[in-house]
Each structure stands twice: as C-alpha cells, then as structure tokens.
Amino acid sequence: MYRNQSSSISSQRGNVYIIAIFVIVVMGMLALNLTRISWSNQDTLTREVLGSQASLLAQSGNEWALTHLFPLDEADDFNSLTARCNSLGTSATAAANALVANSDIPCSSPTISCDASPENIPDDLKYLKVTTRATCNESNVFEVEREETVWVRGIKDE
C-alpha cells in the first residue's frame, strides 16, 4: 500500500508551470502600472514647470507695461496714463520679444495689451486694464497658457 512517488511528482509538475506563468503575468502587470504612474508624474511635472514659466513671463510683461505707464518724473493723471496706454503697442511687441530672447524658456512672445475703461464710468472710477498672455509649449506636445491682468488708476493731484 505504498504510493507511487514518481507519478505523484510528475503530476504536480503542471501546477508549478501554472503558478510560474501566473507570477510572471502579475509581475508584468505591476511593472506596466508602475511605468504608467511614472509617465503620469513626468507629464504632470512638465505641465507644472511650463505653467510656472508662462505665469512668470506674463507677470514680467505686466511689470514692463507698468514701468511704461508710470515712467519717472512724468505726470500720473489719468489722461497721461491713457495716452501712454494707447501708445503701448509697438514698444510692447519689442519688449515681449526681448523678454523671451533673453531667456531659454520654450515660450512664444507674450501679448501685452492695455485697454481703457468705458466712457460712461465716472472720472473717479476710471481705470486701465493691462493684460499679458503668455504661451509656453514643449515640443508641441504640451501647451500651457497663462494670463495676468493688472488694473491701473491714475493718481489724483491734491
């Protein structure tokens, strides 16, 4: 009443193959998911860096526009500001090109615009709206756009 040991071992050999294949498949799925997570993290980081670059470029454009609107030793009343706002066009393009040319960020030249408030607003509430829009892209795969707006009022003469 002894069992035949050789037939028992050979019958279990098929189970080891099934377990080995199962472990290989599970490990492959795990490696695939870890690769996807890593790629997703890199994608998120790239978008975050491009967004920060675009935001800082837009902020730089607004700062340049403010130095154009408020030059030293010039009048700061609303009429003078409006005149400078209307003349912002060509110098803004040159400044925007210089902002991008002096850096090695993958961004196109930002657009800087200045708009006056509507005419039907009372004089003490009139304002100028300076807007800069910057777009950064990495190899035409990711494109991030940021827009910064600054509201400007003239200084009253007392």
Rank of each mutant, 00 (worst) to 15 (best):
E145S: 15
Q5K: 07
A96V: 01
A96E: 03
L30K: 01
A116R: 11
G61Y: 03
V130D: 04
V144W: 05
L45R: 09
D123Q: 15
S55T: 15
I112M: 09
S117C: 02
V100R: 02
C114N: 01
E119R: 04
N62A: 00
E147Q: 13
I112Y: 03
W64T: 05
V152Y: 13
S11I: 03
Q53S: 07
L45W: 06
I155K: 13
E143Q: 12
G89F: 04
A95G: 04
N97Y: 08
I112L: 02
Q42L: 12
N97C: 05
S103I: 00
A58G: 15
P110W: 05
N140Y: 06
M1T: 07
E119I: 06
T44S: 12
I112N: 08
A96N: 02
L50Q: 08
A95M: 02
Q12D: 15
F142M: 03
C136R: 05
N97L: 09
T90Q: 14
N86K: 11
V100Y: 00
D115P: 00
K126G: 08
E158M: 11
S10W: 05
S80Q: 10
N15F: 06
I21R: 02
Q53R: 10
E48H: 10
K126Y: 09
P106E: 02
S38Y: 03
N4L: 03
D73W: 00
T44F: 07
G154A: 00
Y2D: 15
K126W: 12
L34W: 03
F142K: 02
S7A: 14
R13K: 15
T93R: 06
